[in-house]
């Protein structure tokens, strides 16, 4: 971690209010945050700064969170991915972990759990 510069967290959620809330929460935890309404917007954005961690909703119109993880893996992006879901369908957790995500949180989630996940993610060597 570079001294004086907080890690940048990307937040992807199609629900505007939850996206705003997540962004605020991440900033209150001491990180910088960049929000995107969907996976496509994230992929299209120029990443001039290194993204320390990605927090994404799983179910979104277009690419899902899991699709995004696979796409990033294919592109060689190694930033850890934290996934959030509102569903409880069977086999979802296995698929999430298989995709290489580091955390799965269920809505409504505990802020402490998100904090712990992000901490773990940014501490991990790139």
């Amino acid at each position: 971690m570079l001294v004086g510069v907080e890690p940048l967290i990307a937040i992807i959620d199609d629900d505007e209010s939850l996206r705003t809330a997540l962004t605020g929460l991440v900033r209150s935890l001491g990180y910088r945050a960049q929000a995107y309404p969907d996976a496509e917007a994230f992929l299209a954005a120029p990443h001039t700064q290194a993204i320390a961690c990605i927090v994404t909703d799983i179910h979104m119109p277009g690419l899902s969170g899991i699709d995004l993880r696979h796409r990033l893996a294919a592109e060689g992006v190694v930033a850890p991915v934290i996934m959030i879901t509102g569903r409880s369908e069977p086999g979802l957790e296995a698929r999430v972990l298989a995709s290489g995500a580091c955390c799965l949180l269920r809505k409504p989630f505990d802020a402490g759990a998100l904090d712990a996940c992000i901490k773990r993610a940014v501490a991990r060597p790139g």
Partner: peptide, 28 residues
């Protein structure tokens, strides 16, 4: 219903943290 509930929980937690800072950020 879960969407706004999750947002509320996240917002509330954020608020707590803004308050818990050595200098609480009341604007946030």
């Amino acid at each position: 219903v879960n969407q706004p509930l999750a947002a509320i929980a996240a917002n509330a937690a954020a608020g707590q943290r803004w308050l818990d800072r050595p200098e609480p950020d009341l604007v946030e």
